[in-house]
Design a protein around this nucleic acid. Structure first.
Lengths: 107, 107
DNA sequence: AGGATATTTGGCTAAATTGCCAAGCATCCG
DNA sequence: CGGATGCTTGGCAATTTAGCCAAATATCCT
């Protein structure tokens, strides 16, 4: 694999890796529906320590998927790209396909 | 996060995690162009040990993204879902967005 | 049978990821 | 000022992931 091609796949992998966690998927899913959420709201929804959620948000931000905005003592996050729904449609079709095959095995 | 929602995000995360590696992205990219490839061809393209590539292929297969078919002593892999191109379009738009922002910082 | 080729798997080590607690920082309120 | 609130960061332990070599398996060829 030549250096240029490798660099491109590494850049893609970084973005995809940022999405590869249940809590971060919840965050992205939520932000695709409500414009913005503060850390405390997301922490409530996810149900783990706020420090953990803060780190998840940092991963998503670092990957360029979300942006933050501080207002008062709260920090609000929102999506930076809108195409993630198509993304998830594809993931769901993989899951549906897999479920169908497993069902056929049982018959 | 209730159990059902968690289960769904975990299933999604497993699929996405399978894609979150440069070598596996190369494999998927290649298979979106050429119908099928044997392990030896992919090993040649990636440039690491065949055992490593075989493990990457197992990850993708386990996630339901590719299927294998043995013919003679060779094993051929092909994509099981066709929607991955849309997937990558989205990733690319994230990267483009990020690049634009970084460029603006320099100006 | 016996050697060559293609692939997978076991075993190991190094590195990355995750999640919690505690501590730090900034902002608000009394 | 001083305490409370919202969030981030340092530090640590547990788990997962990645990649290599060597060994095992399967198929092909002679």
């Amino acid at each position: 694999m030549d250096a240029k091609r490798l660099a491109r796949y590494e850049a893609r992998a970084q973005v995809i890796k940022a999405l590869a966690h249940p809590a971060r998927l919840l965050i992205v899913d939520e932000l695709s529906q409500v414009e913005e959420r503060c850390v405390c709201e997301l922490t409530e929804m996810i149900g783990s320590d706020m420090s953990t959620v803060s780190r998840h948000l940092a991963v998503l931000k670092n990957a360029g998927l979300i942006v933050d905005q501080k207002r008062g003592q709260m920090v609000f996050y929102r999506l930076r790209v809108k195409c993630l729904l198509k993304f998830f449609e594809c993931v769901e079709s993989v899951l549906a396909c897999r479920a169908r095959d497993q069902h056929e095995l049982l018959v």
